[in-house]
Write a protein that binds this DNA or RNA. Sequence first.
DNA 1: TCAAAAATACCACAATCGTGCGATTGTGCC
DNA 2: GGCACAATCGCACGATTGTGGTATTTTTGA
Lengths: 219, 219
Amino acid sequence: MSDQINTVANISLWLVEDNRHFQQTMFSLINESDGFECAFAFDSCEEALEKLKNAAPPEVILLDIGLKGMNGIEGVKKFKEITPATHIIMLTIQDDSNTVFEALCAGASGYLLKDSSPERVIESVKEVIAGGVSMNAHIAKKIVDMFKQLNPPKGNYRLTEREKEILSFLVTGLSKKQIADKLFISFHTVNTHIKNIYEKLHVNTRAGVISKAFKEKLV
Amino acid sequence: MSDQINTVANISLWLVEDNRHFQQTMFSLINESDGFECAFAFDSCEEALEKLKNAAPPEVILLDIGLKGMNGIEGVKKFKEITPATHIIMLTIQDDSNTVFEALCAGASGYLLKDSSPERVIESVKEVIAGGVSMNAHIAKKIVDMFKQLNPPKGNYRLTEREKEILSFLVTGLSKKQIADKLFISFHTVNTHIKNIYEKLHVNTRAGVISKAFKEKLV
DNA sequence: TCAAAAATACCACAATCGTGCGATTGTGCC
DNA sequence: GGCACAATCGCACGATTGTGGTATTTTTGA
């Protein structure tokens, strides 16, 4: 508790990038920015991971997506295993949405085009530290599209409330008898409801109902 | 082909917003921006939808998410039905991610906080016209999180290739006999395989296997 | 108020399923 | 050679399912 006289601690960043020229540029850019400090710059994930064994993890890692050796995607996973609280921003030359998308799924918090303006770099870092995910409109669209695709408008088979209820029990794997007991109705009634569900969904086996229910998000 | 002397056509926008003060501010902001033109401003979705019947649709609609009458979400759906090529940007007072998320799923191309800077507004419009989706880091995180949730790491139950194959047939609703015929093996063999699958997945009904297969993305 | 829709209940029977056994063959591995 | 494992095949039997009916009561909507 001696010499905390100047300011609050800087945000610490690490840089993993094999292009020495770009590495230098980025390194300087960060260290010249108020409140940020680029502690280390590495040429490969392997080196950075090695360093993590005996150094405090940074708050943010800027990680080239196209590294030799362990590539960025694998890198994200490894880093996140070791220090899950560290935010990782991918660096890419081009707007390759597939790769970026994979990186996000692997745990990255955003990505930056390498030719981004210094302001944009700093803005991204701030965004991820605030808990956000930093991406551009193009990637955002990819993700929203994919999301919509995974959430197709659910088909309407005009199931009644009771039928939906029973469908949900079928999906959990209950037998007719178990459903009857659960709803305090007769086995025969459940039988009838199931017959009606089968007819409405155009299926004729348990397996058919359940697949259809999952595929079309009926449950 | 007569008087195309001045410039390329302006980007046409419509504004749907019931707060008259904000409506005026935004209207002026847009019309003062080079290359943009706010053709109409409406107080409600109903009015704008009415106008669409006899006016050319705009390239972009700025749509308040919290309108009286038909709200923004329903509005997006209606607009998109009538003029799917029109990009819609939602206007929100607060960063309400659930609503914004619904809007995006309903077809919106982005959203703007109402206190965004004029530059941010124009930037968003440009982004959506370029085919992107405009959102901030906070919403982006929500969506990426949701996406990850939909793609959980698949459990490994050490199913053999044959078992996986049979599992996939089970999911499509085939009976033991049908599977046997399809694979040119005996009914009894299929029976055995299914028994083993049940044991490995810790289930004991057809329904159980299929739900588990879907929930854990085994197929 | 009256008809339609939904929920309830019952019966019977063939088909299919789940599960208890046991057994042979081929393959890879130490 | 011996061991583990996957794939194959077999039998038996009780449990459950799917399907063909019919029929009553309650709820809903026009």
